[in-house]
Amino acid sequence: MSGFWGVTRAIVGREFLRFIHQRERFIAALVRPLVWLLIFAAGFRAALGLSIIPPYQTYITYETYIVPGLCAMVLLFNGMQSSLSLVYDREMGSMRLLLTSPFPRWWLLFCRLFGSTAISILQVYTFLGIAALFGITLPTLGYVAVLPGLILGGLMLGALGLVLSSFISQLENFAGVMNFVIFPMFFLSSALYPLWKMAESSPLLRDICALNPFTHVVELIRFLLYLQINLHALAWVVLSTILLTLLAVWGYDPARGLMKRKG
């Protein structure tokens, strides 16, 4: 079993080292949600009237409303970026190195997933720290309580990235991922507006949002930040994580997977 621990440490450690070497990536990952928080939200707050909905117990500013959505956005982008780096990795051959390890493939993929999730979480906490410096604070214990939600959400979105990476063959296609995965997932969710607001315009869109697993990541995080558990969201996220992880393991199965097309 010590080998399993060793391989986990090595893969997660490598993710951290790569992350440290890509400082631009860290800055980009921070700037993105901060732009939304400090610019978009400031301009948008007047346009959107929010009523009191759970988990909030008083009126809140729009900035406060979108913080959980932006935490989830960090997880989403990082999950996708990790998929991009897998495509890149594979072309560079280091994915081959990983996959020819004698350890079970599902375990190797899980370690990789765990490593990228750990980095996402680091980014989320940095983002929350900067938000707090700008006066957008949350219940103190909420910062701790949200951790399991971030882990679960990070794993789910990382698994989604893995699934995509097993079907994407070229680097340029990340633009396609942006258009067809990241934007729809983000905008068709409760990250920027509560679902009841969406329902005022279109009940159909509201229903689509309610089916979007990303909505449930956002809500899971939102409730945990206020020390509550949204069981419905939790169930959705757990289910999606399991399904996507199975799909990723299937996508990387040597008997039918991606390498077949690539040779």
Partner: peptide, 8 residues
Amino acid sequence: SYFAALHG
């Protein structure tokens, strides 16, 4: 070292 760990 990374490779050594991958091979347990």
